[in-house]
Amino acid sequence: MDIKDIMFSQAAIKEIEEIRAKYPTARAALLPALYVAQREFGWLSPEAYEAVSEILGVPKAIARGVGTFYAMYKNRPMGRNVVQLCTNVSCMILGAERLVDFLKNKYGLEPGGTTPDNRFSLVIMECIGACGTAPAMLINDDFYENLTEKYIDEILEKYR
């Protein structure tokens, strides 16, 4: 049995093959394929790399090199919801650090850490392009801006 069949649903394999067709080379499909793998498993495990490598014919060490270069690929298991809080200058001067402390004290959520119930992981971000409405964060794919402690409480409520 090939590792891709163990790791991926047939739908995901098909999706990657379709992505492949959008580019003149298989290699160019690597970034989107890694996104598919990450969506399927929550993170890029060695097996996930092997599976992507198998489908695209890109050597696995190269796939892993690429996957560890980019900050948005997760190379270790993550909680169900990923809180991605910006602390770059514009957010910082408007209180992002206080929010980091707040997440730590109230939710036990350390930067780079995951809550014991696996509900949240916290990732400190560089600028996410919401400086005019700072401080800001992304939870999974959703933007939240003009954050305050109280607002964060309300937002996190929505994520189980």
Binding site: K22, T25, A26, R27, A28, A29, L30, L31, P32, L34, Y35, V58, G65, V66, F69, Y70, A71, M72, Y73, E126
Partner: peptide, 27 residues
């Protein structure tokens, strides 16, 4: 026309790094 999504690397704004990234490499 198609969208190619980067994955979190400021340097990919530099045009040749962007090209590398689009080709499936490190930026």
């Amino acid at each position: 026309l198609a969208v190619h999504q980067g994955a979190g690397a400021y340097i990919c704004g530099e045009e040749t790094a962007l090209i590398e990234s689009l080709e499936g490499d490190k930026g």
